[in-house]
């Protein structure tokens, strides 16, 4: 795990340092005195060898000093925390929506494999996968926000202030993301279940006289949870990419929105911080899924 984090940091640092654009000029403006610019560069340590810059950055992160954002002219740390909370709300909500819909739909499709229910189910899921997230977003805005006015179409409210309102703001973006996610998870669930349902122990369970519902939803599903959870974990990565677009569409100021602003404005310290944090969170989520796996499947031992 530590090795991966280390590699993540290296990759982040390398990629972002190829960014064109002069950091000093960004801070002081393009019309500034060249000498003043040179001084600033010196004091920011931009003329030091890359290794030193890297070392300073890592050391800073470890001690809690994440530097200042050029764009917002504030320390990065607190900004990250706030925006992370916002995105966490969306990510969790959309994953919940997706799983709640996908698992039953996937099992249903697998049971009725190759019959009309399966075709219906897979058509729905293909549709979900094919429409881009932001397209769903646009549709949902048009429908629920403009036409029906049930949900707001932009803005963010912190859960601590007003939980219900925060949920309202988070709902449409989460639904848009969740629908796309659900499609993929449905197909995974269906594929896993068809594999499971063809195994011998399903036949043995029927031969004991168990009701078909028990056979599928207890015996069968219990075996599918593990693989589906793993895929869901992997999809977290995809989700964190999608929030960049979705949050911009909904003006929802979370991590995605923050990253996008950073990239657009060449705010290097912020870019480094956001990219690193996102990658680290994705890695940690997958690690968590790995650690929890023995709960789903007793065959796997914790190492």
């Amino acid at each position: 795990m530590a090795v991966t984090l280390f590699l993540i940091s290296i990759i982040t640092f390398t990629v972002t340092n190829i960014l064109p654009g002069d950091v000093a000029m960004m801070i002081m403006g393009t019309q500034s005195n060249p000498a003043a610019l040179a001084n600033l560069r010196e004091s920011l340590g931009l003329n030091d060898p890359l290794i030193y810059q890297y070392g300073r950055w890592i050391f800073g992160m470890l001690t809690g000093d994440w530097g200042n954002s050029l764009l917002f002219k504030q320390p990065i740390g607190p900004i990250l925390l706030q925006k992370m909370t916002a995105s966490a709300l969306i990510v969790l909500l959309s994953m919940t929506i997706a799983l709640t819909l996908a698992i039953p739909l996937g099992v249903w499709s697998a049971v009725y494999k190759n019959r009309w229910q399966d075709t219906a189910g897979s058509s729905v899921s293909i549709l979900g996968v094919s429409l881009p997230d932001f397209f769903w977003g646009i549709m949902l805005i048009l429908l629920f926000a403009r036409a029906l006015g049930w949900f707001p179409s932009s803005g963010f409210v912190h859960p601590n202030e007003d939980f219900l309102l925060a949920l309202k703001h988070a709902f449409l973006p989460s639904l848009a993301l969740g629908l796309g996610l659900m499609a993929h998870l449905t197909r995974m669930t269906r594929a896993t279940m068809t594999g499971i349902l063809s195994q011998e122990f399903i036949r043995v369970a029927r031969a004991k006289g168990l009701a078909e519902k028990t056979v599928i939803w207890q015996y069968g599903l219990a075996n599918a949870i593990g693989p589906v959870m793993t895929v869901a974990g992997l999809q977290m990565g995809y989700l964190f990419g999608s929030i960049i677009v979705m949050e911009s569409l909904f003006n929802y100021t979370g991590m995605g929105w923050l990253t996008y602003q950073a990239l657009l404005n060449r705010d290097m310290p912020l870019i480094q911080a956001t990219v690193f944090v996102i990658a680290a969170v994705v890695m940690l989520v997958n690690l968590l899924v790995d650690l929890l796996y023995p709960i789903f499947d007793p065959r796997i031992e914790l190492k």
């Binding site: 990565g237 677009v245 990239l263 990219v275 990658a279 680290a280």
Partner: peptide, 14 residues
């Protein structure tokens, strides 16, 4: 661990 879209965005920005 880097979301594909994020990678693409970063590379494009870079």
């Amino acid at each position: 661990s880097f979301p594909a879209l994020l990678l693409a965005l970063t590379i494009s920005a870079v």
